[in-house]
Each structure stands twice: as C-alpha cells, then as structure tokens.
Design a protein around this nucleic acid. Structure first.
Lengths: 145, 145
DNA sequence: CGGAATCCTAGTGGATACTG
DNA sequence: CAGTATCCACTAGGATTCCG
C-alpha cells in the first residue's frame, strides 16, 4: 500500500478530511502512487465519446452498430475502445447472446446510472450554450487579430 | 453559411425541436458544417485540465502560479493552453495588472459560473466512486487474465 | 454482426530554455 | 511573475483488412 500522505493537499483549501486512513484522493494532487487513479478516472469519464455513449444508454440497452450509427462520426475503433473501457470501469454492462449472427448489447450498470444525471447536464449545457461560446470565440479572435 | 439540415438526427430519439431555423446542434450529429462546433465545445469542457481549473476558480480569483501549484502535476504549458482556451470560450476572465512584477488574475465569467455546478458534481463523483472503479478494474482484469 | 489486428499520421503534451 | 518558443516522445485515433 502506498503510505498515507499527511495531506498537504495544495489544491483544496482546507477540505479537512480526517487525514487518517484514507484510501481516497482528491483530484488536485498527483504523485506516482497507484499511477494516479483519480486523475485517470476523471480523464476517462470526461471523455467526449464516453459522455455520448453513457448519455445514449440512458433510456435503453443498445447494440454495437446501433450505438455506432447513433454517434455520428465515431470510428468503429473508438467505439470499441470506449465501450471496453467503460465496461472495465464497471460503468457499462456487456451482454453477449449466443446467436448467429452474434448479438451484443450494452447497458448502463447501476454505478453508471449514478453518473447519468451529471453527464446529461454537461451535455445539455453544451448544447444550450453553444451559440454563446461561438460568439465569445469570434470576439476573442478578432480582438486579438 | 452551412445549409440547415433537415434534421435526420440519428442519435436523439425524436427530440422534436421545431426543425425550422435552428442554429443549434445536438452533440450526436456530425458533419463538416462549422467544423462541428458542438463537439469541439464538448471536448473542451470535458477536459481534465479545464475541469480542474474551473473547479478551483469557484471560490476566488487566482493567479497563474497559484493555479499551477494548486493543480499538482500540470505543466506550465498545459496550464497556459487551458487558460487561453477557457478565456477564448468566454468561460474565464483574465485580468492583467500593470505592475512590476506582473500580476495576472483569473476568475470565472458569468457564463463559466453556469457550468460550475455540473463540473463540480462530476469532480465529486469521481472522488467518491474511485474505489468502486478501481475494484471493478481489478475484477475485470483478472477475469480476462 | 461485432469485433481484433495492423498501420500510419496528426496532434497532445512534457521538458527545457528564453523573455518582458 | 507570467508567460512564449522550441524540440521531441508518445499516443490518440482514423483507415483498412481480416476473423468467429
């Protein structure tokens, strides 16, 4: 086990967690211990393709090619990789039916469901504020020449 | 201007927006028009460094090196790039004080503030569920050999 | 159908050094 | 202090081909 840091957590202003016996890390610290899992996880969840996949799986189970078609522009490789990672992280369940032709279905795990609200609000925010951002960009760009 | 698609949006199951006169796109479609802004924006917001920066700027304005120290492990280059992008997107405000030595402060814009809740819930989720995910990974990995 | 494997390129991002 | 600039390793990710 990595030794317990005496919590000089630089980022969070006195979050005051009882420094003893923590196996949990905040996203602002980084060192080599366990390959910095928290950051990895944040990176995985905050991934464009992951967000879209999870978002789509809200209402129902979907098949591979169904997801592929639903997410316009995703390559087969990236969908494969994304789904695999989400499955590994326990966010998505994969079910293979022993049929010919093969059928594979993906759905959200209970853990995945706990993320759903947040993710959808992120996606919704993006859709709702796109014009503002495009406008801000234009303004910034021509101010800077 | 890109012509308005007649909305064969494949991803969203009948979101039923009044197809006429929309300048807004959903994140599931993709084609060349305007370099696919929505996706770009989603990608920017759902970026590890962006999330951390915005999260930190919740309570107060911060200076460059202050942010640098707060986000353990971020390179100076990435902080520069991230801040620049966030500023360009109108999410963060940059204020330069004409002093020696120079002082530059960053804070959230009103638009940035509308994102804050969502982002923090994402960050919090990550911190809270890290053990579960680490466990899921271990399980997956040794099931697969 | 649902992938896995290979190849290959554009971009990400760290390290380092220099500047106003 | 708050950057910019350069170099460079690494990898993300598209295109293509093959497989059970």
């Amino acid at each position: 086990m990595a030794e317990v840091r005496t919590s000089t957590s630089p980022g969070s202003f006195e979050v005051t967690e009882p420094a003893g016996e923590r196996d949990r890390w905040d996203v602002f610290q980084w060192d080599a211990r366990e390959d910095c899992e928290v950051r990895q996880i944040l990176d995985r969840i905050a991934d464009k393709w992951s967000l879209l996949v999870i978002s789509l799986l809200e209402e129902r189970t979907m098949r591979f090619n169904e997801l592929r078609r639903a997410i316009d522009g995703i390559s087969q490789r990236m969908l494969t990789v994304t789904l695999r990672n989400l499955e590994r992280d326990g966010l998505v369940c994969r079910t293979v039916y022993a049929e010919v032709p093969p059928r594979v279905e993906y759905c959200l795990s209970p853990l995945g469901r706990t993320l759903l609200g947040t993710i959808q609000s992120l996606v919704r925010w993006t859709e709702e504020h796109q014009e503002e951002i495009v406008r801000a960009r234009a303004e910034f760009d021509d101010a800077a020449g």
